[in-house]
Design a protein around this nucleic acid. Structure first.
Lengths: 197, 197
DNA sequence: CCAATATTGTACCAATTAGTACAAAAAGTA
DNA sequence: TACTTTTTGTACTAATTGGTACAATATTGG
């Protein structure tokens, strides 16, 4: 148990790779781009990621789940009013000042960018989990009485995933934030009881 | 004005290229893939598309607009009840038996796949046009009295574009068609007057 | 049937790619 | 100090890439 110590920080390097994947897309990110951003050489890279780019992406997915999504999940699971938290979150998503930016959803992008079936499925199942997180939060809200819609949490959770999927792309096309706010208001009003289908 | 005649059908070759772009994604489609599918050699290809893959994609976009979208636009502009046509169309989109399949939206995919700014913007503006087509159809429906929602056609049109963007991705993740139908029903009910926001 | 023109297939090139091999380096340990 | 272990950087390979050059081919018009 000795050996030359790593000169780089594994998590920081991984985060840099994630940035590249997110910004350029999976297929556009060459090994060279990734190595450069990660600040390591080929020797270190293929030692740490014997599977090359696919393995790096797999680890990136896990890191995005653990790092970027974990906080959001915790809020959904613990906040007093999940419905309000969800609404706030979506409006944050279209705020031009928000750090979320114009990069889209890491997993949604991946599903539409990656040809490799294994990686594509992995990204798709993460998206599905986001839907499940919405659903679970809504179930809790239903019990607590803050979800007043008569629709089932399952259907509403999928609706929110669909809204999530849509808005990430739509906001790249429609720059009028006021209009985006209007459609969010409409879509989120489906969680309220006053809206009868 | 003479010369050796073309051995291939330009439109058929272009359609084949579109298939490749649609199925594999822009970045995954190599020049080799495209030539093979188009059934032509390099000589013919670089004679017809001096700009290479970008030019081919540009022509593909125009062809998809003219060929795939035109029919839909005509219906929207001429049918007696645009609201009903729109609803039918969305349900067709999630029908497993539909030829639309799992390839997603040609333009939406492109926006998320292509790094080249010019091509990306071209795809984005086509998406925007789809939203405008919805809006225009809804304006007509409003005048005809078949659009009963009190929301403006502009906002509802953008909502439909957003639904379009979302459902193309969501149906790749959620295979339960019944659930998909439920969220379509909900989202499309926003066009009806009985739904008050 | 010859000239002009446009298309085709192939051979070729230069650049970039992912990935491997391996020796040098930097630590711990005895 | 010498040995072991792990990481690092570089040099290298093999394959694929997009794109060009060009001679051969197939047509129309004079």
């Amino acid at each position: 148990m000795a050996g030359r110590p790593k000169i780089y920080d594994e998590e920081k390097a991984l985060d840099s790779a994630i940035e590249v994947f997110w910004k350029k897309g999976y297929e556009n990110a060459s090994a060279g781009d990734l190595l450069k951003a990660m600040g390591i050489g080929k020797g270190s890279f293929y030692l740490a990621y014997k599977g090359g780019k696919p393995e790096l992406f797999e680890k990136s997915v896990k890191r995005v789940v653990d790092h970027h999504l974990r906080g959001f999940w915790d809020i959904l699971e613990n906040c007093p009013d999940p419905v309000q938290a969800i609404k706030d979150f979506f409006f944050l998503l279209i705020d031009p000042a928000s750090p979320v930016g114009q990069r889209g959803c890491f997993f949604g992008n991946a599903v539409l960018q990656i040809e490799d079936k294994t990686l594509k499925k992995m990204a798709a199942s993460q998206l599905h989990l986001i839907g499940k997180a919405f659903t679970d939060a809504l179930k809790r809200a239903k019990k607590a009485g803050t979800l007043t819609s008569s629709q089932s949490p399952e259907v509403l959770g999928l609706h929110l995933l669909n809204l999530w999927n849509g808005i990430h792309l739509t906001k790249m096309v429609e720059k009028d934030t006021a209009k985006l706010r209007e459609i969010l208001k409409m879509n989120l009003s489906l969680l309220d009881s006053k809206v009868k289908i």
